[in-house]
Design a protein around this nucleic acid. Sequence first.
RNA 1: CGGGGCGUCGUAUACCGGUAGUACGCAUGGUUUGGGACCAUGUAGACUGGGUUCAAUUCCCAGCGCCCCGACCA
Length: 412
Amino acid sequence: MKYSSYYLKTNKEAKSLESINATLLQKGGFVEQVMAGVYAFLPIGLRVLNKIETIVREEMDKVGSELLLPALSPKSLWEQSGRLNTIDVLFEVRGANDLARAKNSASYILNPTQEEIMTTIVRHYAMSYKDLPLAVYQIQTKFRSEPRAKSGLMRGREFRMKDLYSFHETAEDLDRFYDEMKSVYARVFDRMGLGHATHLTLAGGGDFTSNFSHEFQTVCETGEDIIFYDEKEKIWKNKEVASEELQKTAESVRASEVGNIYRFGTKYSDSFDHIITQQNGDKSAVHTGSYGIGTSRLMGVLVEKFHDEKGIMWPESVAPFTVYLAGLNRDDDATIAAADAAYTALEEAGVETLYDDRDTGTGAKFADAELLGIPWRVVVSKKTAGKLEVTSRATNETHLLEISEFLKKAGK
RNA sequence: CGGGGCGUCGUAUACCGGUAGUACGCAUGGUUUGGGACCAUGUAGACUGGGUUCAAUUCCCAGCGCCCCGACCA
């Protein structure tokens, strides 16, 4: 991608906000705030979000099938599950025509999560024990009318989430799958470079049939949760379920909830009559679980975890580009040709490259490379004499390499 | 939802009871080109409504919006 024709403008003058991710993502032109808790993902920001969601998708595909549910649902569905009154962040909307004819107008809900819809759909498919176990998921925009949106992408009113739902004949089989999901999730966070900082954490299960749920908490100062490590039970616990005793004795850490897994038992199948026929002909309610990962929140958490005073430092697996190719000496035809050739070679080798072909000063190019957090800065100039000057964003080490040597290093 | 702060060109800010200045950005031209370089010219602004006043961007009230603390957080 050539910078000169890409939808990208960085802004060194942007206002510094309390949250690092909001500041750096806006300075770098990754996102633009539309209102409190609502962000537009600009092209380079969408690349990052897509990388994150691709990792999630690849791991989820190993255990389930992807589908896409609507973002809008009838209010009646929420009356049926009883959640109309228990979820206080529901967005209720009406169409313009409905407003004009307010008398018998319908109301809709902008979905904050989709157990209701998923259950009503899946019950038409999974009618026999032969259809189970079953796992389906989607990656979609969710809506929650948060009383206080904050911290950039970490708590929005509109956000991206992967939600997977599993359906089982027995509680035991649900437990088996639930445990399997713990390792599936661990792999997702590992791939994003967050494995070491992300803890499986015991949390409250609310009014669900199981007493506890599990969260995946990434240690992070901007996080909204406080977790404690229970030495005796060898597990992290969210403050909401940690005993007074533990809170007194264990050290607390701030963390951000990047994923969660819940067992519902038959709560939703009871609400929506999701009944299957067993092998012996008996009928029984399906056991379900749901499993979420906040993909846009993860983007915020990644910035909080990986940055320095110059900007973002994306892990290579989620970086918008692998290489920032800075073409210097734009007044020299031979150097321009060399940079063009390097760009072509990198692209042909499958290395995602942002080629800074602008006629600007060197400082502006280097500052952008650092702000944008692209793993490798590659310089082609009069000085580099046919080679590539390669600098790691993470370590700041610089090496002069042949293109072939660099491609090898980049694993191509 | 309680508390606090703030609303001025696209962005960041300044001043002021007598209609607003700077920097960045953007546009044009020129000089530059290994750390956000420079010169010239141009561009563009007082959140909304009400009140006080001869006069309001400025003071007062309300609304709306944004930020922060807390509460909440399927």
